[in-house]
Structure formats: structure tokens, C-alpha cells
Simulated assay, not measured.
Amino acid sequence: MSQRLSVDEQMCGTKMSKTNIKQYMPKKPHKWGFKIFSICDTKGFSYSFELFTGAADNVREEGMPDLGAASNIVVCLSRNIPDFSNHIVYFDNYFTSLGLLVYLGSRGIYSLGTFRANRVKNCKLSTDEQLVVKKAPRGYSEEFVVTAFGVDISTVVWKDSKPVRLASTYAGVQPFKSNNPSDRNTLSRRYNRNRKQYEYVSCPNIVKEYNRHMGGVDLMDSLIGRYKIRMKTGKWPSRIFHHVIDLAIVNAYVLYHRINREKHQRVELPRFREEIAETLLLISETKKLGRPTTAEKQAEEVPKGSKLLYLPPPNIRYDCLNHWPNFCDKSSKRQCRNKPCKSETQVYCEKCNIPLCMSVKKSCFKEFHAE
């Protein structure tokens, strides 16, 4: 798992009325739908998710503490995170509680999140009214650090257009103060409505950490929303099933670019989905009636009684990844699929599932995968 993970909610949009788990959230782009809690890394890869089925849904596994309905979601989603491996989890004020920070800290997992003032008892940070009385300027901040059960927790309030409160077990205010306007690493660019111009204000390190690493679930949700399955259905399990398929495709898309990062091979998401559909169609072994499709024309004729094999797409054939030769029995010899060769061979590619010659005299295996 990646070091930095974020927990947030997303909506699986639908307007069907034959289910009780549908939610209405007016601030979301899709106001009606199923609420899903997900844990992702900063690139949008989803490791796990939980479907929200109602306010009474507060199921806990054996040995897990009861920290409240919202915090229990983070506890449940973080059960697969390795302990004491320096992972960091980010979440917003819906989930944050001091009990959650202490629990994650006891497992060696760092955390950072915004919190609501009424969820922290005897909080020493200034309230909104006190900040108004102090006439705190934009960029003003306060910090208090406390140790609870051996876990150091830093609470910070920062005055932006509105006061923002954050709590963390690994980050604090420092370093952020700078008198040099050119030092943009410690400042934030904000628009001043009175002066009608942009200006730079002091920004704590904890705020920059939160803004830099919190958007993993939103990135994943935006990738799903651009090109999703638009099949209308009146059954809510089918709608969730389509959403899970879209989620699996986005995960595969993120992994593909992570693997090919050094090769600088960029494939857009719609083309990536088309290649998945083409590959799934090619592996079908049922023979259709009527005129052959383009994919079927690419398949060469094979002897009667042998299994129908289709050539893999170029993106898989020439990716130079995990194409390993293997051997079958002599009774299972098949004709080589490399065009110049028509000999029978025992060697086949494990990834492409294509028989290819590989001997001292012939190198069809290498020629087939060479672009």
C-alpha cells in the first residue's frame, strides 16, 4: 500500500425508488444515490470501500474499539493497513475524533484531519467569536499539543476566510513563518475581496500537508464519473455492480500508468476502456453466426479440432512485461502462431496463451513480441 492514504465518501448516483439505502446529499453533484466510503492513495487507487446502509449500521469486528459511527468507518477501512510501517491517513471533519487519532497512533499509523469544535471537549483553541474579538488577521494561527496514552496530538486553528481547525499526530504549525514574499513554500495565495487582488498569507505546514494529500477519493470519483457505465436499471444491486466494474477499471488504469511510468506511455481513459472491451471480446470461444467481425478476421485459420485462438491486442503483445515461455505435453502440441512459421511446438506464452516456437533454429517467441 502507498504511504499516504485518504478516507472520504462518494456517491453512486441513481434515482431508483425501490430501496431504503438511497441517500439524499444536496451538496454533491449527484444528489441522489448510494453513499460509499472509500480509502484511496493520492493517485486515486482504491484499496477498499464500505457501502453505507443506514445510521444504525455500526458493525464492528471483534477486537475493534467503538469510537462512534463515523470514526468506526475509518477503523474498518484501515484494518488492512500494516502496523508500524509509517503510513499516514487523511480524513475530513466527518470522521475526525481524538479517540480515532489515539487508536491509529497506537498502531503506528499517523493521521491528519480537520475537526469540528464541538467534538473536542475543553478545547483550548480560540473559538470563532474569540477570533473576531482579537481581530485576528488572515493567516493567524494557534497550536496546542497534548499527549494522550503515549500519542502526541497537535491541534491547530488557522484563520483563512473562515477559521479552519486541524488535528494531527505527525504535523504541526512549523515551519511556516517567513518574512520573504518570494518564499512560496511557506505562504498561500489568497484573493482579497476588499482590495480585489491576490495576496500571500502565512500558511501552517499542517494545512499544506492536508491540501496536498487529501484528494485521492475525489480523484478516483472524477475518473469514474467521466466515462462510466450508463446502463439504466431498476434493480439497485445491478447499479452497485456496474459501479464496482467502473471502480475496477479505474484501479487498472492507475496501475497501468504506475507500471509504465518510466516508459512514458500515456493512454487516455476512454481508449483504455475500449482496449479492455476489445480484449474481453477476443477471449470469447463461442462462434457467432453471420459475417465475421474485425477481431475474428485477425485470427488465422487453425486445424480442425484445435482450440480457436485470437491474437492479443498490440498493447498487450508488445508491452514486454511477464511474457514467459512454458512447455506443454507432446500430445498437446499446437501450431505456431507466428505468421512465417507453420511448425508445431510445445512452447507457449503464459500471458498471451499463444503457441510459439523457441529453439536453436527458430526464435518465433522473440519475433512475435518484438514490435
Rank of each mutant, 00 (worst) to 15 (best):
M1T: 04
S2W: 06
L5Q: 01
S6P: 03
D8C: 03
Q10D: 11
C12I: 12
K15Y: 00
M16N: 12
M16F: 14
M16K: 15
T19A: 06
M25R: 12
H30N: 14
K31H: 05
G33C: 09
K35N: 07
F37M: 02
F37A: 02
C40Q: 01
C40F: 03
G44N: 03
F45E: 06
A55S: 13
V59Y: 13
E62H: 15
M64G: 08
P65G: 05
P65Q: 08
A69K: 13
N72E: 04
V74Q: 02
C76M: 09
P82Q: 01
D92T: 00
N93G: 03
Y94M: 05
T96W: 00
S97F: 00
G99D: 05
L104E: 04
G108Y: 06
G108Q: 00
Y110T: 04
S111P: 02
L112N: 10
C123V: 00
L131F: 02
K134M: 06
K135P: 02
P137Y: 05
R138Y: 06
V146A: 11
F149I: 07
V151F: 01
S154F: 00
V156Y: 00
D160L: 02
D160M: 07
S161Y: 06
V164P: 08
R165Y: 15
A167G: 01
S168D: 12
A171Y: 12
V173W: 07
F176V: 01
K177H: 01
S178Q: 02
S178I: 07
N180L: 05
S182N: 15
R184S: 08
S188M: 15
R189H: 13
N192Q: 01
N192S: 04
N194G: 05
Q197G: 10
Q197A: 12
Y200M: 04
V201M: 03
S202K: 14
N205Y: 08
Y210I: 05
N211S: 12
V217H: 00
V217T: 09
D218K: 13
M220D: 09
D221S: 04
L223E: 09
G225H: 13
R226M: 13
R226W: 14
I229H: 14
R230K: 15
T233Q: 10
T233P: 08
I240A: 03
L247P: 01
L247G: 06
N251I: 04
A252Y: 07
A252H: 08
Y253N: 08
H257I: 04
R258F: 14
N260S: 10
E262M: 10
R266A: 14
L269V: 06
R271E: 12
E275L: 08
E275T: 11
E275V: 09
I276M: 07
S284N: 15
S284L: 12
E285P: 14
G290R: 06
G290N: 05
T294P: 06
A295L: 12
E296N: 13
K297P: 04
Q298S: 10
V302G: 13
P303A: 08
L309W: 01
Y310R: 15
L311P: 13
C320P: 05
C320R: 15
F327T: 14
C328R: 15
S332T: 11
Q335D: 02
C336H: 02
R337W: 03
N338P: 04
N338F: 14
K339R: 13
K339V: 10
K339W: 10
V347F: 09
S359V: 05
S359R: 11
S359G: 04
K361G: 06
S363E: 08
F365M: 02
E367F: 09
F368G: 01
A370L: 09
